[in-house]
């Protein structure tokens, strides 16, 4: 059995304003093994980024707060750590790549200094200034940027190059866990492929585990070992890449997601998108959040949240269709 690196249990996150409460994440469970990549898939507003920010405890001040659950990292619950210990983890043990490289870098600091800052903040073995400088050059070369460009400012880099700088910052301290929040969404398609393969290579070279957030199933297929599908703050299906991509039984939402991707091998006149919109996270329905859009919706779906059904040791689906009663029926056959 692989070693567990990150174990999220019953995580609940809310954004509170004076007017309303947004239920962004509603009791999710996630597990990431060492050296593996876990993909979180879902549409915009499903709570993917909120989950990622909760792990690092970087939710927006005042508004966002974690209402329950635990985030165990290497056996310690990150949610109960004092802020100073949390700071020691950020950037060194867990680091993050953000969605939009255009705005993720400080515009008036050279890229070299921005990488150096991460190294200096986690300089435990008292490396000298020269050693740190050498490491900055090394990290830049590692992500494919010539070292002489360290004295340049972010505005002198293109989008793809900026994302490389962000990756360099994230990997400079060789973290155990890398959280990548839609790292390629803001980039051109050709650059997307470059950046992705760079990330995969570095992840393997550095023995890093990765939590990859995306809405692109193609990227998941290429990169991840396990997948969790998120919808309205719930994980409605999770499993290994095989469970999700080739398995027989799926949550109707997952089926809908795959139906929305163009398929080159099957001739089709048009895509089959999922009708409707995600429910308003300020007033989630009492039953399954997907019920209003679900083609297989039945009476019990609107009554309560479905329990998690285990399809196999790795594959879990949260849907009444597979709830234990029915499964017993299946087994009886």
């Amino acid at each position: 059995m692989a070693e567990i690196l990150l174990d999220i249990k019953d995580l609940v996150v809310e954004y509170k304003s004076e007017l309303e409460t947004v239920h962004a994440v509603n009791g999710i469970n996630l597990r990431l093994n060492k050296r593996e990549t876990l993909g979180i898939v879902g549409e915009t507003g499903a709570g993917k980024t909120t989950t990622a920010l909760s792990i690092l405890r970087l939710l927006p001040d005042r508004v966002g707060h974690i209402a329950g659950g635990s985030v165990e990292f290497e056996g310690r619950d990150l949610l109960t750590l004092p802020e100073s210990e949390m700071r020691a983890i950020r950037g060194e043990k867990i680091s993050m790549i953000f969605q939009d490289p255009m705005t993720a870098l400080d515009p008036i600091m050279t890229v070299g200094d921005q990488i150096k800052e991460a190294l200096e903040l986690h300089n435990h073995d008292n490396k000298s200034a020269e050693q740190i400088d050498r490491r900055v050059d090394e990290v830049l070369e590692m992500v494919g940027i010539p070292a002489y460009r360290r004295t340049e400012y972010p505005h002198q880099f293109s989008g793809g190059m900026k994302q490389r700088v962000v990756i360099a910052i994230a990997l400079s301290c060789e973290p155990d866990l890398l959280i990548a929040d839609e790292p390629t969404t803001a980039l051109d398609v050709t650059i997307q492929a470059q950046v992705l393969s760079l990330m995969r290579r570095l992840k393997n070279d550095l023995d890093t585990s990765m939590l990859l957030i995306t809405h692109d199933l193609g990227i998941v297929a290429q990169t991840c070992d396990t997948v969790a599908v998120m919808y309205a703050g719930y994980i409605i299906e999770s499993g290994t890449i095989d469970d999700i991509f080739t398995g027989e039984r799926h949550h109707p939402y997952t089926v809908g997601l795959f139906g929305s991707i163009p398929n080159l091998t099957v001739r089709a006149e048009r895509l089959t998108p999922i009708d409707g919109l995600m429910p308003d996270p300020t007033k989630l329905p009492a039953g399954c959040p997907f019920a209003p859009r679900c083609p297989e919706c039945r009476a019990e779906c609107e009554r309560g949240m479905p329990p998690v059904s285990e399809m196999s040791e790795t594959h879990r689906i949260c849907c009444w269709k597979y709830s234990s009663a029915e499964q017993k029926g299946d087994d009886g056959k």
Partner: peptide
């Protein structure tokens, strides 16, 4: 509220540094 501030926090920078070295300079 800019994104780069989150990047600096994600590096593990203490709040004082975030404010004076990045936010204030900008």
């Amino acid at each position: 509220r800019q994104d780069y501030v989150r990047t600096v926090r994600a590096k593990g920078a203490p709040e004082k540094r975030v404010i004076w070295k990045h936010v204030f300079k900008n």
